[in-house]
Design a protein around this nucleic acid. Sequence first.
DNA 1: GCGCCGCTTTGATGCGGATCAATTACTTCT
DNA 2: AGAAGTAATTGATCCGCATCAAAGCGGCGC
Lengths: 242, 242
Amino acid sequence: MPVTNTAFDLDQVRRQCARCDLRDLCLPAGLDNDDVDRVDQMVADRTGLAVGDVLYHAGSPFRALYVIKSGALKTQAVSEGGELQVLGFHLPGEILGFDALATERHQCTAEALEPSSVCRLPYSELERICSAVPGLQRQFMRLVSRDVGDDHDHVAMMGRNQAISRLALFLHSLSKRQARLGRSPEQLTLSMSRSDLANYLGLVLETVSRLFGRLQEMGLIEVRRREIKILDMAGLKEVGDC
Amino acid sequence: MPVTNTAFDLDQVRRQCARCDLRDLCLPAGLDNDDVDRVDQMVADRTGLAVGDVLYHAGSPFRALYVIKSGALKTQAVSEGGELQVLGFHLPGEILGFDALATERHQCTAEALEPSSVCRLPYSELERICSAVPGLQRQFMRLVSRDVGDDHDHVAMMGRNQAISRLALFLHSLSKRQARLGRSPEQLTLSMSRSDLANYLGLVLETVSRLFGRLQEMGLIEVRRREIKILDMAGLKEVGDC
DNA sequence: GCGCCGCTTTGATGCGGATCAATTACTTCT
DNA sequence: AGAAGTAATTGATCCGCATCAAAGCGGCGC
């Protein structure tokens, strides 16, 4: 038992994972209580981010991974020619920073789209504990694998040559991710601007705006600024498949 | 190297990693001799694939990862609506099958574009040995991270709205990957058809064919069927940046 | 309140890449 | 060598999305 200010605070700090809503989606999933506490102790800190705050910059040295506890972030990379590409929108339970491992430097910039909080996992610690706790190793891999799968979905979406399919696919997949978090799959609150979304989809913002209009005319969704209500999930999925 | 059934060859079979050209790019990188042998023992088999052979199908249960020893493969996914998307072209030293971990089923199909050979890594073994050999764990993560980085490059490429930028970026990045394998960065032999390449780039094959022509007219490359010679690397990179 | 600023929508136009179609080049088999 | 089949090139046309431009809508400070 390490010594700190008050025993009361200690318990609060140390048992956050056990009480976190995301424990079944996040690293502790499937672990027993003792191992959850070891994960808890590994978490260096839980940082709050305001809208626009940057968690890490492309090019900065890699030290830790992050798991999103609440809020939403985007990741984006800038090419040498200055072209920007939004790589992903990330929700609670997702892991960030993994692409930095190969080069020891972050390959993209992670920025908060909403007030958010993230759990910082120093990589050296994570490696050490993963070796000791097989279940953690496995769950960690699962999170990374899910991330790879999301990237593949992104590519598949950008491969569609009908722009409306891309938007429909995006809304459908966002809906599924929301549902995974226990939120309503019909009522979406987009945390990103039209511009970010357009870039993510490989379109321009005017096109995205028009397509929201068209999907609304088709009776598939209801749009009011960044509030989207999905009226016809099956229809949306159909549009997604060209 | 032909493999027969005599005990004499056993040593040869068991020390393949130590003598493999890829040992510095692949899992054994950075390991000492004893640990390399442990990796070696983990490799269930080294399978040869003919052009068109499928290593695994989307939907099939996940049992093992694969590292490419020689040749080239493509991975592709088919949406529920039947739309096909080529997700990647994979060269020696790259790891395949990781996207299956989250769901325990392969999310895409891996098919040989050339006569190839792959090393099969049963995942349960890999997990076990990773726990015991920290250096292996780290190198494994590095390979996966590189894969994630490649996916991000793919997205960035598809985000370009000038089709010629996409092709230029593809050629440039393929050149770099060839160089990493110790091959000439100027002389490329494409192992994929125009159709596969077009799909990968989010274009149609006619467009790709025309763009090869245009890059050739611009004096940046020389095209003869699937043999591409890069004449002006800097110019190619410039076209890649819109 | 009013004005300012960023975000979003809506409109008009032009171009780039998809599509349809035909020809050519290469490979394989007999 | 010739035939047949596949892959790649080249051509003509059309449509969808990018581009340029302007107006509407909210949020926020003065």
